[in-house]
Design a binder for these strands. Structure first.
Length: 463
RNA sequence: GGCGGAGUCGCCAAGUGGUAAGGCAAUGGUUUGCAAAACCGUCAUUCGUGGGUUCGAUUCCCACCUCCGCCUCCA
């Protein structure tokens, strides 16, 4: 497939460096609260990326970290009176269940920062030894940016106002740490009172690793000094990924990531998502509003990953209908197959354009559009042609991570009292007692149920 | 101020130097006791504004307007 590379700023062919397994790393969540849909846009699109590679027959090695020690996790664990581990475990669990609900494949390896302190200390040691890092008077260790000429390439610092020299002069006086240069970033934070019990021993005294370092250390551990691709939200380009490049290349040699894949932030109702605006949706919030995780996923893949996606409740409703339409079409195809069985497809058939779209810079919205277009043709088919179409459809849906809702109403979960009302209504209706029938229909809908009448019976569905 | 992105039907959203995918909504019809559901159909001569290049631009160039994001932790 072709994918836009953030560093090279052009579409690049995606293929494993070692010819066997495509190895990629995604910056994972900081587990100090529930992840929001903005976070999930990134994780869902990374999931589609992986599924696309795998659907194309590639083997993958997907590594995604858990940040379980930083300022926020320490601060909020103390606020809640829990140990750091108990606190982060609970949010890690929540994250996993949300990911499952959104049909995101779990990464093959999910290392946590706390579990890789020795690796991080070792990397800092290497950087100090090679002259890329220095120890300040208080025992903190900083990366010396001036020692790495390639610094700023990913985020194109030289084309922005962030001239390093200028930044130093502008901020040197306001920073509490002693540093050679203000832009130097911290690798090891010396222990402070408000860290509580959250500190580790190191050659530079008690403290904890800096945030940027954990990814570099874990990447080195599981993917080595050169691997295929590194991904995250756009906000991570600078300084996080820039710092990772500096740390890893200086400490380990190697080229670090061959490609960079960044997902643009989403907007909510046309603006930035923020707590103060009350538009910080979590998956749980949306479920309470009656939307399914699959509907959320559908919305999240409904715009190209390099464009801002305008997330609205209306688009979620649209997703609900669109998924329903897909499910109906798939059911009709199955019906039209007659006695044929739908075998796993060797190709995409009518849905080849959708597959092509995915492979063209992961164009998920174009792929979705192509699915509906293909379905229009598919609906005319019968027998083994319908079977082949259904197989192609299932294959492309799997690549997108979409599972279809049930088309036939599930009557098994109807409460007894609702069932009774509906039965009464049906008999009234059968007796052409329209007044009673309509009255009971209103009652049912007030209770949240809709009765859909057919020739020989009715079906109940939740409103 | 610097950097970057974007303005395409009511909403969401693809796309292209050759005349606008798709979804939602809306709307007409079939069906229905009436609805709902289902099914069939309709739905941008036009792509922020003004110029320019071109046989031809929504797509390229210039100017302008508007919006958004980043530049501090952030997916």
């Amino acid at each position: 497939m072709q994918l836009f590379d953030t560093l090279r700023r052009e579409d690049c062919g995606i293929a494993p460096l070692d010819g066997k397994t495509y190895r990629f790393y995604c910056c994972g969540p900081t587990v100090y609260g529930p992840a929001h849909i903005g976070n999930f846009r990134t994780f869902v699109l990374q999931d589609v990326f992986r599924r696309t590679l795998e659907t194309g027959g590639m083997r993958t090695l997907h590594v995604r970290n858990i940040t379980d020690v930083d300022d926020k996790t320490i601060r909020d664990s103390q606020k809640s009176g829990q140990s750091l581990k108990a606190f982060t475990d609970q949010w890690k669990e929540k994250f996993h269940s949300d990911c499952d609900a959104l049909a995101c494949l779990p990464p093959h390896i999910e290392p946590s920062a706390v579990e890789h302190i020795p690796q991080q200390i070792a990397m800092i040691g290497a950087l100090v030894e090679k002259g890329h890092a220095y120890v300040s008077d208080d025992g903190s260790v900083y990366f010396k940016i001036s020692s790495f000429p390639g610094y700023g390439k990913l985020s194109r610092l030289d084309e922005r106002e962030l001239d390093l020299g200028k930044t130093q002069n502008a901020r040197a006086s306001s920073d509490e740490y002693e540093k050679d240069s203000i832009s130097d970033f911290v690798l090891w934070k010396t222990r402070r009172d408000d860290d509580g019990e959250n500190f580790w021993e190191s050659p530079w005294g008690q403290g904890r690793p800096g945030w940027h370092l954990e990814c570099s250390a874990m990447i080195q551990e599981y993917l080595g000094d050169t691997f295929d691709l590194h991904s995250g939200g756009v906000d991570l380009v600078f300084p996080h990924h820039e710092n990772e490049i500096a740390q890893s290349r200086c400490a380990c040699g190697g080229n670090f990531a061959a490609h960079w894949f960044h997902i643009t932030h989403l907007l909510v109702d046309g603006g930035k998502m923020s707590k103060s605006l009350g538009n910080m949706h979590t998956l749980s919030d949306l479920r309470e509003k009656g939307f399914t995780p699959m509907e959320v996923r559908y919305v999240l893949i409904g715009a190209h990953y390099r464009k801002q996606l305008n997330f609205t409740l209306d688009s979620l409703s649209g997703a609900k209908e669109a998924l329903h339409k897909l499910a109906k079409s798939a059911a009709k195809l199955a019906e039209n197959m007659g006695g044929e069985t739908s075998l796993p497809a060797a190709d995409f058939g009518l849905f080849q354009p959708a597959w092509d779209a995915l492979n063209n810079d992961l164009n998920t919205p174009a792929a979705l559009g192509a699915i509906f277009t293909g379905l229009r043709e598919a609906s005319k088919l019968t027998g083994n042609e319908a079977a082949a179409a259904l197989a192609g459809l299932n294959r492309i849906l799997k690549a997108l991570g979409i599972t279809l809702p049930e088309t036939s109403g599930d009557d098994s979960e109807v409460p007894a009292d609702i069932r009774e009302l509906a039965e009464t209504r049906w008999s009234a209706r059968s007796n052409k007692d329209w007044a009673t029938s309509d009255k009971l229909r209103d009652q049912l809908s007030a209770l949240g149920w809709a009765a859909k009448d057919g020739k020989d019976g009715y079906q109940l569905s939740k409103l």
